[in-house]
Design a protein around this nucleic acid. Structure first.
Length: 798
RNA sequence: GAGCCCGUGGUCUAGUGGUAUGACGUUUCCCUGACUUGGAAGAGGUCGCAGGUUCGAUCCCUGCCGGGCUCACCA
C-alpha cells in the first residue's frame, strides 16, 4: 500500500474539509432509540450579545468538547446540543447599547423585532466559531431560549412551581434598576467601589439640632423616621418626639432600634423608603408611611418639591447645595464605599414597591445545599461557592421583569377579585399580552387583564435540562434526567447552576445532572479579563485562521480545570509544533508501514524485541493515566501525558532506536523489522486516538491516510485499552537503562562538539552490560557504537 | 470583614512526605536517510516568609505577607 502525503500539513484547508465531511455524515448525531448508554451534556447556551468572540469563549467551550469526544470514543451515545440564550435583559441591553435605544421611547413590537434580528446575527457568529473549532455538536439539537420549546417549558415550569406553592406574587419593596427600568434579583447585582461623601445634616427637634450622617442626601424627602439605639444616652430624651425634616418641612417620628450602632456616625440615622434593606425592615416593623420620591426611571417626583424632575444624581447635588445655603449641611467627609449596582449597566440599585412574582428559596436553603451535595463538582472546591451563595441569600428569587423581550407569564388577573387566572397548559406557549382571555373569572367578572411583565432570563435557562428533554411534550425523552454533565464557567455558579438546581429540586425532587465541571476564564497575557475597551481583546477566529483549530484546542487543553488561562501567542505556537510533529512522525511511520499488513495479524507479540515491548508497556501507562484524567474531566492531565510520551519517549528515543531495524532488514533481520512495524502500528494508532478528543483534525487526517477502514472516522473508533500482557518489570528496567545510557552517550558527543552520528567505543559496568545485552543490536545502532565492552566504570570514547 | 483558590528557575507552568516537571526565552553544539515549526546538551530554582508535626516537607498543620476570585457590610 503506497501512502501519498504532502510534505507540509495545511491546517486551514484540512480542517475545513473535515468540518464539511463530519457535518454531511452527521457523524455526531444523537441516536434517539439506542441501547448504548447516554452521555448527555447540558451545553451552556451563550448570550446572543456579542459581535466578536474572544479566545476565552473558544477555550471554555473547547474544554468540554474534549469530554464529548472522549465519551463518544468510550462508546457512549453522546447527547451534545447547542442552545442560544437569546431572550431577556442581556439581549435587550445589547440592542439598546448598539442602537442607542431607550426602552421607554420605543414600541414593544419594534424593540422585539430588533432583538430577534440581532439574535440571528450573533447566533451565526457562535455557529461559525464552534464549527470552525470542529465541535461535535449534534446540530439537529439546537434550541433558543426565546424559541417555542423553551417558552413552553418555562411556562410549564411556572405552572408547576405555582401549583407546588413555590411561587408567589408579592407587593413588597424590591431591588430596582432605574436604567433598565426593571425589578431585579440578588444574583443580578455586582459590587462597585465609589467615591462618595458622608454628609452631616441637621434635623431639628425640641429646639435642638439633631445631626445625622448620610451618603444619600437626595433621599431626605423620603425620610419617614429618625432612629437611634435605645441604650444611647445622648438621645434618650427624644423618645416619642418628632423631628423636623430640613428643606421639606414635615415631621417624622423619632424611634429606637437595636440595629442602630451608636458608634457609627452620630448614632442617629434616618429611615427612608427606601435606601437599603435596613430601611425596608424598619418600615415594615414600625409600620411607617411610604414616601417613594422617584419614578421608575429615577426622576424625582412631587415629594421632592422644587427638585421634582431631576434625576437622583442631580437631585443629590442640588439638595446638598440648598442644605449648604440654609446651614443644615454641617460637614462633609470624603469616603470610598462599595455600592450594589446592576451587573448589566452598573447603575446603583434603588428600591421600589411593585407587585412581582418570586420563587421562594429562603425557606429551603438547607435542602438546596443538600441537593448541591448530591452533584459531583469538578473541581470539588467549586461547590463551596454554591453553598456560600445560598447561605448569604437575603431575597427570594424575583422572576418578574418589567421588560419587553422575554417569555411572557402564562397568567391573567381578574380586575374585580384580583385572583390569578392561569393559562391552559395544553396550549403553551401562550402570550397573554397578545391573546384575549376567553372566559370569565370564577367570581363572574369578565374584566380580565394580562400580566404584562416578562420572565427573568434565568427563569428560562434554569430549565435547560428540561428543554433538552423536551419536557411535557409528546416527544419527551424518557429516562433522560438527570443529565450526565453540566459544563459552565465559575462566574455563573450563583445564577445558572444555582437556579437550575432549584428548578430541578422543586419540580422533580432530583438533581439536574450527575456531574458539573467548572472551567476558568481566558485572560490576556497579564492575567486580566479581556475587554474591548481595554484593548486586550483577542478575537478567536483570527487566532484560528493563523494557527489552526487544533493548535487552538491544544492550547485550551493546557489549563487545569477551573483555572483561568492566560492567552500568550507563544503558547499557541508551541501547540502548533505538536501538530507539525504529529504530521511528520506519522509520515515517517507510514513510510515504513507501507508493506505491513495492518489488517492482518502477521506478527506474534510474544516474539517482540525488548525495546518494542518496553515502548508498549510505556504506552499502557499513558493509556491508563490519560483515561483516568478524562474520566474526571482533567483533560490537561490526559493531554500532558500523551504529549510527553509522544514527543519524548516515542519520537526522540524510540524512533531513533528503531530506525536501524526499519532501514536495514538485511543486516538486522526481517523479523526484527516486523517487530518494529508491529510496534509502530500499535503505538501510533493509540497515540492518535488519545490525541483525537483534543486535536480532532490532524488525528482524523492522519488516521484517514492509513488506519481508517472504509473511511471510518477515528472519532467513532474505540478508545484504546491497556494490554496488561506487556507489563514486565525487568523489561522496563532494561529499557529505562538503555535510554539513560543513550542520553549519556549523546551528552558526551554534544559536549565534544561532535555529530550524533560519530562512532564511539563504550564501556559498561557489568550489571548494565547484562541488561543491555538483551537488546545489544538496537543499542549499538542507536549509539553508533563500534564496540561495547564490560569494564570497571562507564565510559565513552571516539 | 469572611470564604475559596493561588504564590515553584527571567516568563508561564506540572507535581509529589525523601530538594523538583515541561514549555518559552537564553548559551553551546549537531544540516542524525520524518521533522530546522528539528535534534543533542549547558546555565538558571534555599518550590512567598516564619514557626510546628516528622528520621525527613516544596508538598501536612498554624500564623503572617502578597495576588486573584467570590460574598458581605455600606446611616
Amino acid at each position: 500500500m503506497k501512502i501519498e502525503m504532502p510534505n507540509k500539513y495545511s491546517a486551514n484547508e484540512t480542517e475545513a474539509k473535515w468540518v464539511e465531511i463530519w457535518n454531511k455524515k452527521k457523524l455526531y448525531k444523537f441516536k434517539k432509540n439506542s441501547d448504548d448508554s447516554t452521555f448527555s451534556i447540558d451545553t451552556p447556551p451563550p448570550y446572543a450579545s456579542a459581535d466578536h468572540l474572544h479566545v476565552g469563549h473558544g477555550m471554555h467551550y473547547s474544554q468540554f468538547e474534549f469530554i464529548a469526544r472522549y465519551q463518544r470514543m468510550k462508546g457512549k451515545n453522546v447527547f451534545f446540543p447547542m442552545g442560544y440564550d437569546d431572550n431577556g435583559l442581556p439581549t435587550e441591553r445589547f440592542v439598546e447599547t448598539k442602537y442607542k435605544i431607550d426602552k421607554s421611547k420605543t414600541t414593544r413590537k419594534d424593540f422585539i423585532k430588533l432583538c430577534l434580528e440581532e439574535t440571528k446575527k450573533t447566533g451565526k457568529t457562535y455557529y461559525d466559531l464552534f464549527n470552525s473549532l470542529g465541535f461535535s455538536i449534534d446540530w439537529d439539537l439546537v434550541y433558543q431560549t426565546i424559541g417555542p420549546t423553551a417558552r413552553r417549558v418555562a411556562q410549564k415550569s411556572f405552572l408547576d412551581l405555582y401549583k407546588k406553592g413555590r411561587l408567589e406574587r408579592v407587593d413588597l419593596p424590591s431591588m430596582w434598576c432605574t436604567t433598565c427600568q426593571t425589578n431585579l434579583a440578588q444574583a443580578d447585582l455586582d459590587n462597585l467601589e465609589f467615591e462618595s461623601k458622608f454628609n452631616d445634616i441637621a434635623f431639628t427637634a425640641k429646639g435642638r439640632e439633631l445631626i445625622i450622617s448620610t451618603t444619600r442626601p437626595e433621599l431626605i424627602p423620603a425620610c419617614v423616621a429618625l432612629s437611634y439605639n435605645p441604650t444611647d444616652k445622648r438621645y434618650i430624651d427624644l423618645k416619642g418626639e418628632f423631628a423636623q425634616v430640613p428643606l421639606f418641612n414635615y415631621e417624622v417620628p423619632i424611634i429606637t432600634d437595636e440595629s442602630v450602632d451608636p458608634e457609627v456616625g452620630t448614632g442617629l440615622m434616618m429611615v427612608c423608603t427606601f435606601g437599603d434593606k435596613e430601611d425596608i425592615e424598619k418600615w415594615h416593623k414600625y409600620n411607617l408611611p411610604l414616601r417613594i420620591v422617584f419614578s421608575e426611571a429615577g426622576e424625582m417626583n412631587k415629594y421632592a418639591g422644587e427638585f421634582e424632575g431631576l434625576t437622583l444624581k442631580k437631585a443629590r447635588t442640588a439638595i446638598l447645595e440648598k442644605l449648604r445655603e440654609t446651614g443644615a449641611l454641617k460637614s462633609q467627609k470624603e469616603i470610598t464605599h462599595a455600592v450594589n449596582v446592576h451587573e448589566r449597566c452598573q447603575t446603583e440599585i434603588e428600591f421600589l414597591k411593585k407587585p412581582q412574582w418570586q420563587i421562594k428559596v429562603l425557606d429551603k436553603k438547607e435542602e438546596l445545599i443538600e441537593a448541591g451535595r448530591k452533584v459531583n463538582w469538578y473541581p470539588e472546591h467549586m461547590r463551596t461557592r454554591y453553598e456560600h451563595w445560598i447561605n448569604n441569600l437575603n431575597w427570594n428569587w424575583s422572576i418578574s421583569r418589567q421588560r419587553y423581550y422575554g417569555v411572557p407569564f402564562p397568567v391573567w388577573y381578574c380586575e374585580d377579585c384580583e385572583s390569578v387566572i392561569l393559562g391552559d397548559e395544553t396550549k403553551f406557549p401562550i402570550d397573554p399580552r397578545e391573546e384575549k382571555y376567553e372566559g370569565k373569572c370564577e367570581c363572574g367578572s369578565s374584566k380580565i387583564v394580562p400580566e404584562m411583565d416578562v420572565m427573568d432570563t434565568w427563569m428560562i435557562s434554569s430549565n435547560t435540562p428540561e428543554i433538552n428533554a423536551n419536557w411535557s411534550s409528546d416527544d419527551e425523552l424518557k429516562d433522560f434526567l438527570p443529565m450526565s454533565l453540566r459544563p459552565q464557567a465559575h462566574d455563573i455558579i450563583r445564577t445558572w447552576a444555582f437556579y437550575t438546581i432549584v428548578k430541578s429540586y422543586y419540580s422533580h425532587g432530583d438533581i439536574p445532572w450527575k456531574d458539573i465541571m467548572i472551567s476558568g476564564h481566558g485572560q490576556d497575557s497579564h492575567g486580566h479579563k479581556m475587554s474591548k475597551s481595554k484593548g486586550n481583546f483577542v478575537v478567536a477566529q483570527e487566532v484560528i485562521e493563523k494557527y489552526g483549530s487544533d493548535s487552538f484546542r491544544l492550547w485550551s487543553a493546557t489549563s487545569k480545570l477551573g483555572e483561568d488561562l492566560k492567552y500568550r501567542e507563544e503558547d499557541i505556537k508551541s501547540a502548533q509544533k505538536t501538530v507539525t510533529k504529529l504530521w511528520n512522525a506519522s509520515k515517517f511511520c507510514y513510510m515504513h508501514l507501507e508493506d505491513y499488513d495492518h489488517a492482518g495479524k502477521n506478527y506474534d507479540p510474544d516474539k517482540l524485541e525488548l525495546m518494542d515491548r518496553w515502548l508498549l508497556l510505556k504506552l499502557n501507562k499513558v493509556i491508563n493515566n490519560s483515561t483516568d484524567g478524562f474520566d474526571v474531566y482533567e483533560f490537561s492531565k490526559a493531554k500532558k501525558e500523551v504529549e510527553n510520551f509522544f514527543w519524548s519517549t516515542f519520537c526522540d528515543n524510540y524512533l531513533e532506536i528503531v530506525k536501524d531495524r526499519l532501514y536495514n532488514p538485511d543486516s538486522r533481520g526481517e523479523i526484527s523489522r516486523l517487530s518494529g512495524q508491529y510496534t509502530l502500528h500499535t503505538v501510533l494508532l493509540d497515540v492518535l486516538k488519545i490525541f483525537a478528543p483534543i486535536a480532532p483534525f490532524i488525528t482524523e487526517e492522519l488516521h484517514s491516510h492509513y488506519f481508517s477502514e472504509d473511511g471510518k472516522s477515528i472519532h467513532i473508533s474505540d478508545w484504546p485499552e491497556a494490554d496488561i500482557g506487556f507489563e514486565n518489570e525487568e523489561i522496563e528496567i532494561a529499557g529505562d537503562k538503555f535510554v539513560e545510557i543513550l542520553g549519556n552517550v549523546r551528552r558526551f558527543k554534544s559536549e565534544s562538539g561532535k555529530s550524533l552520528k560519530e562512532e564511539v567505543n563504550i564501556v559498561l559496568i557489568k550489571e548494565d552490560f547484562e541488561l543491555i545485552s538483551k537488546c545489544m543490536d538496537d543499542f549499538k545502532a542507536a549509539t553508533k557504537a563500534k564496540g561495547v565492552v564490560v569494564g570497571e566504570e562507564f565510559s565513552v570514547s571516539f
